[in-house]
Every structure is written in C-alpha cells, then in structure tokens.
Amino acid sequence: MSKHLLLRGVHKRIRHALRRKKPFSLVRIGDGENIVLAQKSVWSIRKVMKQKWARKARRGKKGVTLPNLKLRNEMVRSIRRATVVGILPKNDRNIRAPRYLKRKLTKKVFNYYKLKPKLTCHACVNRFLARRRSFWRMLRKYRVLIINKHPKKLKRILRRRPYRLKIRGTIAFSHYRHMRRAVRKARAMKNRFDVALISCGVNAVILAPRIAKSTGKVAIDFGKGTRRLAR
C-alpha cells in the first residue's frame, strides 16, 4: 500500500538522501505523461493522437514525438524504479488541462500497468518546493547538476541571490533522442555533483530514475518549477 507524502515529507526524504549519499529519484505524472502511457494500452493510438498535447508533440513542441511505444515502455519501467511518484489530486486546479487527462487517466494507466508506487506526493511538488526558502537553503550545501533545454541560462539564475547554488555541471537536453547521451554524461560527472535538477518535460520521468541508479545521486524531476524562480 502506498504512502502519500506531504510537502514536508518530500523535503525530508530528499534531505535524508543527500545527507546519507543515497540514490533518490522524484518523478511526476501529469497530463503529458498520462497521454504517453495511454498509447495502445487504455486508449487507441488514434484517440491519443487526437489530443492537443499529442499534436504538439508531433510538431516537435514537447521534447518527444508520438506515437512512441518505446518511450511508453521506458516510462512504465521508470515509474516502477522511482523513489517517489507525484500524482495529481482528484480535483486538481494547478495544471491547465482537461479533467479527463488528469487523475482519472492516471488511475486508468496505473491500473493497466499495475503500477503501485510505495511513496506518492502531489504532482506539483516541484512548484511548491521552488517557493520554499528552506529547499534552496538545503541545496546550497550541495553540488548541483542542471539538465534542461537552456541549462546555462538557468545556471546564471541559480548562482545568484536568493539561491546562490553551487552549479557544478550542465547538460543540454531538448528531445527524447538525447536520453542515452544525457545519462552517459551524468555518469561521467558523478563525482562532481550531488543532486540533479531535471527540467525536460515527460523525458524527466525516464531520466531521473536512470541518473539516480547510474550515479547513486539524487535526481529530481523539477519541471516547471524553474518558472517560479526569481529572475
């Protein structure tokens, strides 16, 4: 039976993993991840491709190209490996997406794949953490790796006040096809960082557990938490 963590609980688990130098991965399941998982499982490919998110993905705007069953299967495996899995509450108002693409669809795909995470939290935990000064104070003590589309821009922001983080590496990532390269680079840098902040859409669900496993570090699917930062 899964245990649902509040924000304080997630913060505590991250802090514990960092202090003990234990691998830890946090992933989050929103509408995009639900659509990827629904491919040829609870929905037909035709129904998936009718969704606005999927059409944007086909045009190269989501960092993945659908349909893609390999991506779907990798995501399922990564959810099983993740330390904590963020899911949306039943009446979510944080994510701008039709209701049928949110918790209702998560329940369907999780039941289909028999996904039963031991630890869950709110899928918008990244946004909540970004607002907590205590979160940034904690990260200040550790070496950070940034993975996203424009990592150098984010590096400049996070090195300044009020964050003042020690950024020890960056990896540019804009599409699913960069997955192997990103994991390989993170593995090569494992002695230079303690925690990876990953913002690369649905790809982060696959990337975070892989990096945690291959480096023994903390890997956080930080998503749009970066949009909450002071510029």
Score class of each variant (00 low, 15 high):
98 P>C: 10
77 R>F: 05
97 A>S: 05
95 I>S: 15
90 K>S: 13
78 S>F: 01
80 R>I: 06
96 R>P: 08
106 T>E: 08
108 K>Q: 06
107 K>S: 01
110 F>L: 05
106 T>D: 07
114 K>Y: 09
90 K>R: 11
101 L>H: 11
80 R>F: 04
99 R>L: 12
96 R>G: 10
79 I>R: 03
91 N>I: 15
93 R>N: 14
80 R>Q: 11
113 Y>F: 08
81 R>T: 06
76 V>E: 01
92 D>H: 06
78 S>T: 07
98 P>Y: 11
82 A>Q: 05
83 T>S: 07
103 R>W: 07
94 N>T: 11
79 I>Q: 00
110 F>N: 01
84 V>T: 08
90 K>E: 09
76 V>G: 00
86 G>C: 04
109 V>P: 02
100 Y>M: 03
99 R>S: 10
85 V>R: 13
76 V>K: 00
111 N>E: 03
112 Y>L: 01
83 T>F: 15
90 K>L: 11
113 Y>I: 13
95 I>K: 10
82 A>I: 09
108 K>H: 03
87 I>K: 10
86 G>E: 15
83 T>G: 09
81 R>L: 10
81 R>V: 09
89 P>G: 02
96 R>E: 09
111 N>C: 01
99 R>F: 13
112 Y>S: 00
106 T>I: 06
96 R>D: 12
88 L>Q: 08
96 R>W: 14
102 K>P: 09
101 L>D: 02
95 I>M: 13
88 L>Y: 10
97 A>E: 02
79 I>G: 02
78 S>D: 03
95 I>R: 15
101 L>I: 04
84 V>A: 14
92 D>E: 09
107 K>Y: 04
93 R>F: 15
114 K>M: 12
102 K>E: 12
106 T>S: 13
102 K>D: 15
111 N>W: 02
97 A>G: 02
91 N>A: 13
93 R>P: 09
95 I>N: 15
80 R>S: 05
101 L>G: 04
77 R>P: 14
76 V>N: 00
114 K>I: 12
75 M>V: 08
89 P>M: 03
75 M>L: 08
100 Y>R: 06
114 K>V: 15
76 V>W: 00
106 T>M: 04
81 R>N: 05
108 K>I: 05
76 V>I: 03
108 K>F: 03
100 Y>E: 11
110 F>A: 05
109 V>L: 02
96 R>Q: 06
100 Y>V: 06
95 I>A: 15
84 V>W: 08
91 N>M: 11
83 T>L: 10
84 V>C: 15
92 D>L: 05
96 R>M: 11
82 A>E: 08
84 V>D: 11
112 Y>I: 09
98 P>S: 08
95 I>G: 14
102 K>T: 13
98 P>R: 13
111 N>S: 03
104 K>M: 11
101 L>R: 06
75 M>E: 04
85 V>Q: 14
90 K>A: 12
81 R>K: 08
85 V>N: 07
103 R>N: 07
79 I>S: 02
97 A>D: 09
83 T>I: 08
89 P>R: 02
92 D>A: 11
115 L>Q: 03
81 R>Q: 13
104 K>D: 12
86 G>Q: 06
82 A>N: 10
80 R>D: 04
109 V>H: 01
104 K>V: 15
115 L>D: 03
84 V>G: 11
77 R>M: 14
114 K>P: 07
79 I>L: 04
94 N>I: 14
93 R>V: 10
86 G>V: 07
